[in-house]
């Protein structure tokens, strides 16, 4: 048997092959540009409104809830094709007979979308520049906001990927993804009516709840762990869906 680093390297080559192909697909697809444009346009307009109202703090706290909600709507559109398209065109048959594990396929697709998403966030650095120009900047909250956005986006992407693995219809995948995310988003608001025993649990599960601290410049382990476990959980489920698809094929 080969060494552990060697085997990790070999796994990585296969995973990266999948990621590269997905990034290629994003780069040549009008959908990715449409999604990025809509997101940046609406987000930028709201940032402008906030500035126009005379927001005084030198960080991104005010815009973050809006950004997060917009992402909830656009990320499933970005992820909807990931597996559903392969199912409808039949390319999944070749993909799954290449010497790649189901996990490599899933992680590869996830990483590609995460990279595409990170690229989509790059233009928002303009907001940071505006803040820098107009005032003394609190770098801590800005850094933590971007870490939070990456974690939140990663969780959204993994859930969208899971939704895409459930169907061969991309529209259904997008609607399912948005629906699941919305549900997890509003869970927090339900906490108050669910009584003392359930409410902390439901509150912990809420995607929105964990995001608040990042805007304040607070990096809490429980928030980071929460998003990472959402990602791990969704990627694991997606892998199982692909696996069970073989048995139903």
């Amino acid at each position: 048997m080969s060494s552990i680093p060697g085997s990790i390297a070999r796994h990585w080559i296969g995973t990266w092959a999948v990621s590269r192909r997905e990034l290629y697909a994003y780069l040549v697809s009008p959908m990715a540009y449409a999604v990025a444009s809509v997101f940046l346009l609406v987000n930028g307009f709201i940032f402008f409104l906030i500035l126009a109202q005379g927001f005084a703090e030198a960080n991104l706290k005010a815009i973050l809830p809006t950004t997060a909600f917009l992402l909830l709507l656009v990320i499933p559109v970005l992820t909807m094709r990931l597996v559903a398209e392969e199912r409808s065109t039949g390319t999944i048959e070749l993909l799954m007979t290449f010497p790649l594990s189901d996990a490599q396929v899933v992680v590869g697709k996830f990483l590609a979308t995460l990279i595409a998403y990170a690229l989509m966030l790059v233009p928002t650095l303009a907001y940071v520049m505006i803040i820098v120009i107009y005032g003394a900047t609190e770098w801590g909250p800005i850094m933590s906001a971007y870490i939070g956005l990456l974690l939140l986006g990663g969780a959204f992407i993994s859930l969208g990927l899971f939704a895409s693995s459930l169907t061969r219809n991309q529209i259904v995948a997008a609607i399912l993804g948005i629906g699941l995310l919305l549900m997890l988003w509003v869970l927090g608001s339900g906490a108050s009516v669910l009584g003392p025993r359930l409410s902390p649990i439901v509150g912990y599960l809420s995607l929105a709840e964990h995001f608040q601290n990042f805007g304040l410049g607070v990096l809490e382990v429980k928030d980071i762990v929460y998003y990472l476990s959402v990602m791990a959980g969704c990627l694991f489920l997606t892998t199982r869906v692909l696996e069970s698809g073989r048995w139903r094929a």
């Binding site: 290629y24 040549v28 697809s29 065109t89 039949g90 390319t91 999944i92 007979t97």
Partner: peptide, 15 residues
């Protein structure tokens, strides 16, 4: 060890 050509030749058409 195999090379496979499925029936309807599913390829990534955007590449």
């Amino acid at each position: 060890r195999i090379g496979y050509l499925p029936e309807n030749v599913p390829l990534y058409t955007e590449m």
